[in-house]
């Protein structure tokens, strides 16, 4: 739909303009603006409570900003419900458990594929996912809540890999995973990037995130403290992340 707009090619894939947002009376973001160009990988860094997760939620429509606007492909998406963001090609892998614990592995996948591929395409999409992650295929009838943390993350990523969304918002994908599994997750993220998906990575494991990212944004107390290419971040990240006053 956005492709029909005349300036969509020039506009960034995602843009936040002066976004303020929060939860009930609590405000978490104060005038956050940034743009994410197609095909780039952006790392969103910052200490706990700096507002990273809130930014991620704004980008996928889960939270409606109280001020400012959200633009996808040159179209104003502010205030639209989250499922419209998803239909426009934004996939958000939220922090923590991001699969339906009460549904089986297959149902988890079918929920997404049924919407994007229709009834007919679901079967093929499922096979594609199982081919990539044979482990999920073995457990297709298993309820996702009984999978291990790493397997749940694989399930969430399998969905993304098959979907090939335009934008993936990955919130703390490595949280609670052993280092060796985190490496796997980042290898998959690289594959996703190579397939043409734009990435917004929210991460505390700074080293991993910076290893894959082109640009970085550092949030502090709900405001942007740094926005630029990773190469310019320099040793700034030590100071901003470690010694926050």
């Amino acid at each position: 739909m956005a492709a029909a707009e005349p300036d969509s090619a020039a506009a960034p894939l995602l843009e936040l303009r002066g976004v303020e947002a929060g939860y009930g009376p609590f405000r978490a973001l104060f005038g956050v603006s940034f743009a994410l160009a197609r095909g780039r990988v952006l790392a969103l860094l910052g200490s706990n409570g700096a507002g990273k997760t809130t930014v991620a939620r704004v980008c996928s429509g889960l939270i409606v900003p109280t001020a400012g606007s959200v633009w996808l492909d040159g179209t104003d998406f502010t205030g639209r419900p989250a499922h419209e963001y998803a239909c426009a090609g934004v996939v958000h892998a939220p922090e923590g458990r991001s699969v339906f614990a009460t549904l089986t592995v297959e149902e988890n996948l079918a929920l997404t594929f049924g919407r994007s591929r229709g009834r007919a395409g679901t079967g093929a999409a499922l096979e594609e996912a199982y081919a990539m992650f044979p482990r999920l295929g073995e457990r297709r009838r298993q309820v996702a809540g009984t999978l291990s943390g790493g397997e749940q993350r694989m399930l969430a990523l399998a969905r993304v890999l098959v979907e090939k969304p335009r934008l993936l918002v990955a919130d703390e994908l490595s949280l609670g995973l052993a280092p060796i599994v985190v490496d796997d997750v980042y290898r998959i993220l690289a594959t996703i990037r190579d397939a043409g998906t734009t990435l917004l990575i929210v991460e505390q494991h700074v080293h991993h995130a910076l290893g894959i990212a082109d640009d970085a944004i550092v949030l502090a107390h709900g405001e942007i403290a740094f926005d630029g290419p990773v190469s310019e971040l320099g040793d700034l990240h030590e100071r901003v992340l470690g010694g926050d006053p």
Partner: peptide, 11 residues
């Protein structure tokens, strides 16, 4: 039990 999980560096 994993007291640092979810905490940032300063915390």
């Amino acid at each position: 039990d994993e007291p640092s999980s979810g905490l940032d560096r300063a915390e």
